[in-house]
Design a binder for these strands. Structure first.
Length: 266
DNA sequence: TTAAGTGTTGCTCT
DNA sequence: AAGAGCAACACTTA
């Protein structure tokens, strides 16, 4: 699930409830999601420490530790970051649980175990190792920066938008929404985008991602409360173009399915 | 029942 | 050497 908006919601949650609290215990209940760190080493690194900041780059969440270092989290195709007050009531698929003390417990979940949690000494080093491009919602990532990031590639625009080394944060779902709002054919080769399209693309990207964060991406009811002008609620077999153009079409990008309206996306 | 499909990424192959 | 294809995983749907 988690693309940029979902992870931004997790970041805000961690920032609001998880900072400046001493970590008393680290419970690793499924070590498969640990990224180049053992359960014992993770516990050693975190016990007695506290988080001092929560940052995000694309789909990666980084929690800064006092006395140096970061906890890095990625959620793969399914995952969440949840607080709960009873340590016995960790959500399903919890892989790592941090106990901050009475009534404050944080659980990292990963249903399909494609997520990864690790530690990094330096955030920039981590970002470089992951080959992450600029964050899609970074203030300095303006239309010119988007054009520059896309420069050089000849692929279709949807594939380029989903390439985390080009820009970080957009996946299969939100690339469909962004391209629908920008009225651009997802398979259109990047070099064929004219300046007006690039401008629309950049505007749609910011609007869609920010609105998704504002509406609480990742929540159960997220799709139900979206404006009727959005593609996402229709993004399924039998879905219709929100602008009244009839059935949406699908196409395959590797193993992923893209949805679009062939009438309004050119 | 079995198989295909899934909001991601990384590795392999061309 | 950029880009396509597939495996990794666990669960849902056809």
């Amino acid at each position: 699930m988690p693309e940029l908006p979902d992870v931004e919601v997790y970041r805000r949650r961690l920032s609001a409830h998880g900072l400046h609290k001493k970590i008393g215990k680290v419970a690793v209940t499924d070590a498969r999601i640990l990224d180049r760190v053992s359960a014992a080493a993770l516990a050693r690194r975190l016990t007695g420490r506290q988080f001092t900041a929560a940052e995000r780059r694309g789909k990666h969440l980084l929690a800064r530790l006092d006395k140096g270092g970061w906890v890095t989290m990625h959620f793969g195709m399914s995952g969440d970051l949840l607080f709960h007050d009873d340590p016995e009531k960790a959500p399903p698929y919890t892989c790592v649980r941090l106990d901050f003390g009475r009534g404050a417990h944080l659980s990292y979940t990963s249903r399909r175990k494609l997520g990864r949690l690790g530690v990094a000494d330096d955030a920039d080093e981590f970002i470089a190792r992951q080959r992450l491009g600029p964050d899609a919602l970074d203030r300095s990532f303006d239309a010119a920066a988007l054009k520059k990031a896309l420069g050089g590639t000849t692929r279709g625009i949807k594939a380029a938008l989903m390439d985390q080394s080009v820009l970080a944060g957009i996946g299969n779902i939100f690339s469909d929404e962004i391209l629908f709002q920008a009225r651009i054919d997802p398979r259109k080769p990047v070099p064929k985008l004219d300046p007006a399209e690039l401008k629309r693309l950049h505007g749609a990207m910011r609007r869609v991602l920010q609105e998704a964060v504002r509406r609480g991406a990742g929540s159960e009811t997220f799709l139900e409360h979206l404006p009727s002008s959005w593609l996402l609620p229709q993004r399924r077999k039998g879905g219709k173009c929100p602008r009244g153009h009839g059935a949406l079409k699908t196409f395959k990008l590797g193993a992923r399915t893209g949805y679009y309206c062939p009438r309004c996306q050119r």
